[in-house]
Design a protein around this nucleic acid. Structure first.
Length: 311
DNA sequence: TCTCCTCGAGATCT
DNA sequence: CTCGAGGAGA
């Protein structure tokens, strides 16, 4: 995002700050737009709810006429049609009322930088002022809180927290669900005595195999994992690598970062390789093949076989 | 072998 | 921002 901003010459100098506190009073926002890029796309719905001391005290919702035909892809996604925005105000007319509603409050949203960037640019263009509210991002909270999860879309959070979700992406509906996710994670942090500031600030440094400690003390010695050393290459489909490594050590096995003579299993991720690869094989794969030829006790298995071994 | 750095690419929002 | 591969240098 920063790179894109520099390339396109957009530096949002007066943007608010990301906060690691968990406020009781705030405004949850969500926008529907004609696309993903604030430079080329426009707002078609402004939504917000005001929460004070845990209670929803006010709501704001307004469609916005972008001044051109909305792509059918967006209509399918959001349920917002050209007929619906035909009588709606332009962004220049709708924005001041919206800003009055949001006021100076802390803003909460899912991947809220998306919404804030749209608001910032529209404020600059229409009103010659920035949008500088500080904010809390529920996507960032989820990433920090549940680093073992691969996906952190709003949809994924709702599934994880056991909530049914709507088909259409209308602003107020998404806002209500975002608020639910915020409150859920806020309680999760408080109930588990987590230090929110340090957890929400930590950047997830690279996990090395030796950092993974077993969470159990008793091991089944007949497990195919027992006393075996596992190494992973490529991206796993079903979980992130750290979670798979945790499974290995909890079954009495060990993990390594690189392939060597002590490696017993190399697990090939079903997903694409991200690093440089020639002939579709990673360096770990080729090294494992060599060791196997020279008589080492090493097996090269697929991700699916790995899961089968767990049973 | 290990630690640290760089690079590419995916994720997330509509 | 994150994750994973791979290279440099101790």
């Amino acid at each position: 995002m920063i790179g894109d901003e520099l390339l396109s010459g957009i530096v949002r100098e007066y943007k608010g700050q990301h906060l690691t506190i968990l406020p009781d009073s705030y405004v949850v926002i969500d926008l529907e737009t004609t696309g993903l890029d604030p430079q080329w796309n426009d707002i078609i719905e402004l939504g917000a709810i005001r929460v004070e001391k845990g209670n929803v005290v006010d709501k704001f919702s307004s469609l916005v006429n972008p001044g051109y035909i909305i792509d059918s892809f967006i209509t399918d996604l959001t349920g917002i049609t050209n007929e619906m925005v035909a009588s709606a105000p332009s962004i220049k007319d709708a924005l001041p009322k919206y800003l009055d509603f949001v006021n100076e409050s802390i803003v909460i949203g899912h991947n809220v930088n998306f919404d804030i960037n749209f608001l910032y640019d529209n404020c600059m263009n229409s009103l010659k002022r920035p949008f500088s509210n500080d904010y809390v991002d529920t996507m960032r909270m989820s990433r920090k809180l549940f680093p073992q999860e691969r996906h952190h879309r709003l949809h994924d959070l709702l599934t994880r927290f056991g909530v049914k979700q709507n088909v259409e992406h209308r602003a107020l509906a998404d806002i209500e669900q975002t608020n639910y996710c915020y409150l859920y994670m806020k309680s999760y942090i408080q109930d588990n005595g987590i230090d929110s500031v340090s957890v929400l600030n930590r950047h997830h440094s690279h996990i090395s195999a030796k950092d993974i400690k077993a969470t159990v003390t008793e091991f089944d010695e007949s497990s195919p994992f027992y006393d075996k050393t596992f190494v992973f290459t490529g991206t796993l489909e079903r979980m992130i690598r750290a979670a798979a490594m945790q499974l290995v050590v909890d079954h009495g096995g060990n993990c390594g970062d690189g392939v060597n003579k002590t490696t017993n299993f190399l697990v090939l991720g079903n997903g694409d390789f991200r690093g440089t690869k020639k002939d579709g094989k990673s360096a770990k794969y080729k090294k494992a093949e060599q060791l196997k030829l020279s008589g080492c006790d090493i097996e090269i298995i697929s991700e699916n076989v790995f899961y089968d071994m767990l049973e």
